[in-house]
Structure formats: structure tokens, C-alpha cells
């Protein structure tokens, strides 16, 4: 019997069809490197608001997630760095968007923990700083603070290559938070530059097993923008 592979979608809009207002969304990428360009463009066309977004930078200088930030679709953001993102810094200081700044290592580990079934962990990062306020402190070799797992309804991530089971291969530093977010979200949507048949990626080379991927589609029109082009000469 031949049944249709339920993971494979045609485009971003169809893959995002059941994302609703008020949901929590993880978005992969470091700055603009490795962002899910097609999914972000689809979100600009969707009638959703009050999103909680978990993403390291929430875009940059008018690009990436800033496109939906300036449409006032984001209510709350978790991120580690807002430098270079004046649209977010302004909304943060005026309290238009609630921003929780999370140290980047704690940020990635909270996401990883969610995917791995770990509820919380102790870390020395942030002890004695503003981000420790209200958190449980416990003495090990040094004082540590308790940090909890970060879950999401959806994750939108981009990979260079993926097969129809959702096995993924990332290029260079475009991997960053994406495999962790794929593990942490209830529904992970992946867009790829090259969608291939199962078996075409060597099992040794798979960076993220497809078990963590619920939807995948062949993306298009990638810009892969460079934020700061610096060369030898």
C-alpha cells in the first residue's frame, strides 16, 4: 500500500497552517545566519499576533524576525543579544514588547533540556547578576542558579539538506540553535535548500535525526544575507 508521506509539505504557508495567535515559536539562526527565511516571510502574511518568540537575536536591522516584530505580532521575546537590533531595543525600553534576556549558554541549554526531558538544571552562569533575581540558588563547588527548560509549540528552522524522513545536514555555522529547537518544539517545521530522498544522506553524516522533525519542505529564493562582510584584502 502506498500512502502519502505526512511529513512533506509544499511550502511555508501550508506547513504553518495551524500556528495560532498566542502560541510560542522557536526560530533558529544566529543573527541572520541559518534563519528560516521562507517561514518568516510566510508569518508576515499570516493573521497571527501575541506570539512568544524564542530566538537568539530576533532578527537584525530590519531583516529576519524584525519583519514580524514591526508588524506588532510579537508579545514576548526570549533572546540573548539585542545589539544591532534597534527595533527590538526601542520596544524593549518602552516595554511594548516584554523581553527576557537569557545568557546564551543558558539559553541553548534550556532549549536542549526541553527536548531531552530535563526539567531544570543548576548553572553558575548569571549568579550574582540581575538575571539571578527570583531564582533558586544552591551551593555546589560554587553558587549556582536553577534554570528551567524552554518549550515551544512550533519551531521554524532551516537546514542545507534534508530527506523526506526529516534527517538533516547543516552547513558550517548555520547549525547553531536549530537542532536544539527542533528537539524542544511540539511541531518542528524545517525548510531546506535541498530536499532529497531517504538514503541520500549517509547515516554517518546526519546532524539531526528525523525523529525530531514533523514537517519539511523544499524552500526557495534564499538570500543567505551576510551581516558583516570582512575579507583578507
Amino acid at each position: 500500500m502506498n500512502t502519502k508521506n505526512p511529513k512533506v509539505y509544499t511550502d511555508a504557508l501550508s506547513a504553518l497552517h495551524d500556528l495560532k495567535s498566542g502560541m510560542t515559536l522557536m526560530s533558529g539562526g544566529f543573527g541572520l545566519c541559518g534563519i528560516a527565511e521562507n517561514c518568516i516571510d510566510a508569518l508576515t502574511m499570516m493573521d497571527v499576533k501575541d506570539l512568544t518568540v524564542i530566538s537568539n537575536n530576533i532578527g537584525n536591522s530590519g531583516r529576519g524576525l524584525v519583519k514580524i516584530l514591526i508588524q506588532d505580532k510579537i508579545k514576548k521575546a526570549y533572546c540573548s543579544y539585542v545589539g544591532g537590533n534597534p527595533d527590538l531595543e526601542v520596544r524593549m525600553l518602552s516595554k511594548q514588547v516584554e523581553v527576557e534576556l537569557v545568557p546564551q549558554g543558558t539559553f541553548s541549554e534550556r532549549i536542549r533540556a526541553a527536548g531531552m526531558g530535563i526539567r531544570a538544571f543548576y548553572t553558575p552562569t548569571g549568579h550574582g547578576t540581575l538575571i539571578a533575581e527570583g531564582k533558586e540558588v544552591k551551593m555546589f563547588d560554587r553558587p549556582c542558579i536553577l534554570e528551567t527548560a524552554l518549550h515551544a509549540d512550533f519551531a521554524i528552522i532551516k537546514a542545507q539538506r534534508g530527506d523526506t524522513f526529516g534527517n538533516l545536514w547543516f552547513k558550517e555555522t548555520a547549525r547553531n540553535f536549530s537542532p536544539l529547537m527542533a528537539m524542544a518544539a511540539k511541531t518542528t517545521i524545517v525548510e531546506v535548500e535541498e530536499l532529497v530522498e531517504v538514503g541520500e544522506i549517509d547515516p554517518h553524516d546526519i546532524h539531526l535525526p528525523g525523529i525530531f522533525v514533523q514537517r519539511i519542505f523544499q524552500g526557495k529564493n534564499y538570500k543567505n544575507e551576510i551581516e558583516f562582510l570582512v575579507t583578507e584584502n
Binding site: 541559518g34 552547513k171 558550517e172 543567505n224 551576510i226 558583516f228 575579507t231
Partner: peptide
């Protein structure tokens, strides 16, 4: 730094520089 002909948009440092 990369040579001009070897620049890759997916190869950056934490400052988002190639």
C-alpha cells in the same frame, strides 16, 4: 578573514562577521 573568493554566508563568528 576569508579571501574574497572564499566568502561563505554560513561561515561567521559570534560578531556575525565572515
Amino acid at each position: 578573514r576569508p579571501k574574497k573568493e572564499n566568502v561563505s554566508p554560513t561561515l561567521i563568528n559570534a560578531g556575525k562577521e565572515t
